[in-house]
């Protein structure tokens, strides 16, 4: 789960079900169990978008108190089995933007093989965090053991896919690998992400007609 791109009365978020479910139910509410909702709806997804879900949820009609904590989650049923997502939360901002101050973190250059994703875990424990900015290089495109090499790599799992990513399926598989990291998931559920693409999201040191390795 990831949460993100906050606006004063809206909240966009996305979530990847683990099956090829087609209809995903979502909610935003004042408590984590989803028994009371401020707004809710459904989103139909399929393999054409890698089963991701994006919702632009308007909670402005919910009489939400500024800075109050709101919860959101997803549920889908596929082949008779119900799947429920972890619950995420964020702090509401009202239409008058009455925040006296905002607390945010900046991260960048997240190379799965090098580890140090514990930084995400640390941020997920900071209660007052309003959002975090990822300034680029959310993923790295290299094949396994290229960067980091076998001396520097801290993970025992083989990088997926094992080759340098170049096709749409490759990029999707690499995002899935990164998003399976528990620390990254914890931060995604804790605070909205404002994400920026740099070069490693597609290839290193790109210029007008090519790139370092191409």
């Amino acid at each position: 789960m990831a949460a993100c791109d906050p606006k004063n009365t809206k909240y966009t978020y996305n979530y990847s079900p683990t099956s090829d479910a087609v209809t995903v139910h979502w909610f935003i509410g004042p408590n984590a169990d989803g028994t009371k909702t401020i707004t809710a709806g459904t989103f139909v997804t399929d393999g054409g978008r890698d089963w991701t879900v994006k919702v632009d949820a308007d909670y402005s009609t919910g009489n939400v108190v500024a800075q109050s904590k709101l919860y959101y989650g997803f549920q889908a049923t596929h082949m008779g089995i119900s799947y429920t997502s972890p619950i995420g939360h964020f702090r509401a901002i009202d239409s008058k933007n009455t925040f006296a101050e905002l607390t945010y973190a900046t991260v960048s250059c997240s190379n799965w093989g090098f580890g140090m994703f514990n930084a995400y875990d640390t941020l997920s424990k900071i209660e007052e965090l309003d959002f975090y900015v990822h300034a680029g290089d959310n993923i790295y495109e290299y094949k396994d053991l290229r960067y980091p090499d076998d001396h520097m790599k801290v993970r025992t799992q083989i990088t997926d896919p094992p080759h340098e990513i170049a096709s749409l399926d490759d990029y999707r598989r690499r995002y899935r690998l990164y998003r399976n990291d528990a620390s990254m998931q914890a931060l995604g559920a804790h605070a909205p992400l404002i994400s920026i693409a740099d070069d490693h999201e597609y290839t290193n040191n790109a210029w007008l007609t090519g790139a370092e390795n191409h």
């Binding site: 990831a2 949460a3 993100c4 791109d5 606006k7 966009t12 978020y13 996305n14 990847s16 978008r49 890698d50 991701t52 994006k54 632009d56 959310n138 495109e141 340098e164 990513i165 170049a166 096709s167 749409l168 490759d170 990029y171 999707r172 690499r174 995002y175 998003r179 909205p192 992400l193 994400s195 693409a197 999201e201 597609y202 290839t203 790109a206 007609t209 090519g210 790139a211 390795n213 191409h214």
Partner: peptide, 23 residues
């Protein structure tokens, strides 16, 4: 390795699918 622009297209499509950016 694929055509460079095709590769960039695939990369950005995946980025917008997985990154929480308003479409």
């Amino acid at each position: 390795e694929g055509d460079y622009y095709e590769r960039m297209h695939f990369a950005m499509k995946a980025f917008f699918e997985y990154m929480p950016i308003r479409e």
